[in-house]
Amino acid sequence: MQVPAPFEYERATSVDHAISLLERLGGTARLIAGGHSLLPMMKLRLANFDYLIDINDLHGELGYVEAGPDEIRIGALTRHRELLESPVLAAAFPIFADAERVIADPVVRNRGTLGGSLCQADPSEDLSAVCTTLDARCVIRGPGGAERVVSMEDFHVGPYETAVADDEILVEIRLPVRPGCGSAYAKVERRAGDWAVVSAGAAVWLDGGAIVDARVGLAAVGPNTTGIPAISAALRGQEPSESLYEQAGAIAADSCDPVTDQRGSADYKRHLAAELTRRTLRRAVERARS
């Protein structure tokens, strides 16, 4: 049995309570949501914290998927499984279910949360790639109830680093809703439940035959999950076609920065960035059309 170093533990009773604890305890404390990223690191003693603040009792407050007229709002404590099973997301953004089906396993999905996934800021995190693809906004709350909203680009500031300060908490993700959308996700893994060798998300917005906007997000090919603005620029105003997907794939391969590791060589990952970009764009367009 792997055992973590000693720590103290408290359950937060409200978001403000959690923030006041964070304010008091500073960098020696960590929020714990699903715990599926934090606890493995603590058990391996790669991370040691003096205090854990458990926010699972806030699921009533922070666990939801709500559809508004021009955005979908998701609470930070919404669990993988709830995202997988959400009819709202299935209708608006099937990319979520695509991704959730290949994230970890049912045990992890029953506990792990959207907020924890984004705040972990692992370069291979699938939901970060999904949120990047969908141009999500992250709502961060700090002391005194002050809230700020940041884009995914600004949210992740490096591997395992986010814009969330020591006394702040991520409370909500907002996904803009525009008409004519299709989205899809694809991942290559060495084994079911493994982290991505590479994964890609794509979303397109069609008007008539033409692409109004398109976004691609990649995981595991750089310091953070990356959006690729050059693809959006190349696809806007074009009719979907195989050669367009080829072009997007080539841009994806060029713009990413993978490293060789146990999961695969940098060349292979670059190849996958192209291949999965093509596949997800193709799928997203099919879905937008149907």
Binding site: V188, R190, V197, R263, G264, S265, Y268, K269
Partner: peptide
């Protein structure tokens, strides 16, 4: 024979 090695 991981995907990367098969691709090689």
């Amino acid at each position: 024979l991981t995907p990367s090695r098969v691709w090689d």
